[in-house]
Computed example of a mutant assay.
Amino acid sequence: MGRLLGLFGGRRVVITDGAWGTEMQARGLAIGQPGDLWNLERPADVLAVARSYIDSGSHVILTNTFRGNAVALAAIGLADRVAEINRRGAEISREAARARPGVRVFGSMGPTGKVLATGEIGPEAVTSAFASQAEALAAGGVDALLFETFSDVEEARLAVRSARPLGLPIVVSFAFDAGKKKDRTMMGVTPEAVGQAMAEEGADAVGANCGAGPDAFPSICRRLGESSGLPVWIKPNAGIPALDAGKAVYTMTPEDFAGHAAPIIEAGARFLGGCCGTSPAFVQALTKALESCASS
């Protein structure tokens, strides 16, 4: 079964959560602003987001720490607050998870935002940034670590290596949104290259999130699973957004989104949730769709 799936007692498909940024913007976070500092300044709002997903059926709740590494925080003058932002983020999600037995907390870790290939950042700085963030999340009580929305395999390799000494299960998820078929990352990496690399590094699961709507994910899911032999983590966006006064607007309904669950699960997904534009209503719809699949 593996130590990651073992956290869920052999559940065939684990329902994760949906978008955090969308929910925090509804509570007043300015578009384009990182929400990580809310762990310290507005913890009640962060707790409310976590609880809303758990109440909707999530078996996995993330932490509000996507941009919590030292490199990303340095861009907004908060590099010295890595430990407290991440530890508090983990503690808040841990508090929310206590309301429902079996809910697990995964520490959310996004990329640095710098490019290794051009020398914009070096491997030592990347490794240090992820190691310090992972240590703080572990201190806050997370059950596993999720590196999400990556595009560079080499950065992801460093991320896994930096976190492996902590002994926590590790999931690595990439955004596939480039190429003619939208099956490449921004750096031109294929699902096959991602799957092979993450298996080599000892990740416990590999996945795809963001990038596109759910119709694009069955093929990517299958290719990730076949190339890695690992459980696959999938979190699509709520379709392709339209721009309204410079703001991304997602029009896909929760029911339409959940209608894509069956082919994604048939393609091998073991973890399924939503990314940009999704909400607790989408998780609730996914939960109902999963129940329907199980009874059919």
Rank of each mutant, 00 (worst) to 15 (best):
C276M: 07
N39S: 15
L158T: 04
T65D: 02
G277I: 06
T22L: 10
R27K: 15
L137I: 09
G277N: 04
V103P: 01
A44T: 10
A19W: 10
R12Y: 05
R51L: 14
C275I: 06
A281V: 02
G110D: 02
G268V: 12
I54P: 02
G18Q: 04
Q133A: 11
A72P: 07
E91N: 10
K235T: 03
A197C: 13
E95Y: 11
A175E: 14
G122K: 08
M24T: 13
Q284D: 07
V13H: 06
L4S: 02
L7A: 11
D177Q: 15
Q33R: 15
R184S: 12
D244N: 09
S162V: 08
Q196W: 04
S279W: 04
A281W: 02
T190C: 11
V232L: 12
L40M: 13
A156V: 06
I31P: 12
S58T: 05
L137K: 01
G277A: 04
G107R: 01
V153P: 00
G259E: 02
R51H: 08
F66M: 05
I85F: 14
L230P: 00
K288Q: 08
N209Y: 07
P34E: 06
A144C: 07
K114Y: 13
N209W: 06
P280T: 03
D36G: 09
M198R: 02
E266W: 07
I31D: 13
P111F: 14
R87A: 11
A129F: 12
T16M: 14
G68D: 04
F66C: 01
E124Y: 10
T22K: 04
T65I: 12
M186G: 01
R88D: 07
L73Q: 01
G259L: 06
A205V: 03
F150C: 05
A48F: 08
G102R: 13
M1V: 12
A70N: 01
L73S: 01
P111S: 14
G239C: 05
G225N: 03
N86W: 15
V283D: 00
A144N: 02
P101F: 06
V172F: 11
R51E: 15
T112R: 06
G188N: 14
M187Q: 10
A178F: 15
L224I: 11
P214G: 05
G89K: 01
N237Y: 09
L230Y: 03
D55T: 08
K181W: 14
G6T: 08
L166R: 06
G18M: 07
A248G: 01
F147D: 00
E155V: 10
G229E: 11
A294K: 09
M1C: 05
Q284G: 07
V14C: 07
K114W: 10
F282K: 00
A178M: 08
L78G: 05
A163I: 10
V71R: 00
T287N: 09
G167H: 10
P191L: 13
E120W: 11
P101H: 14
A245Y: 04
S228M: 12
G2E: 15
A199I: 11
V142H: 00
D80A: 15
G113C: 13
P231R: 02
W233G: 01
T65W: 07
T278C: 06
S295H: 12
A294V: 06
I240H: 02
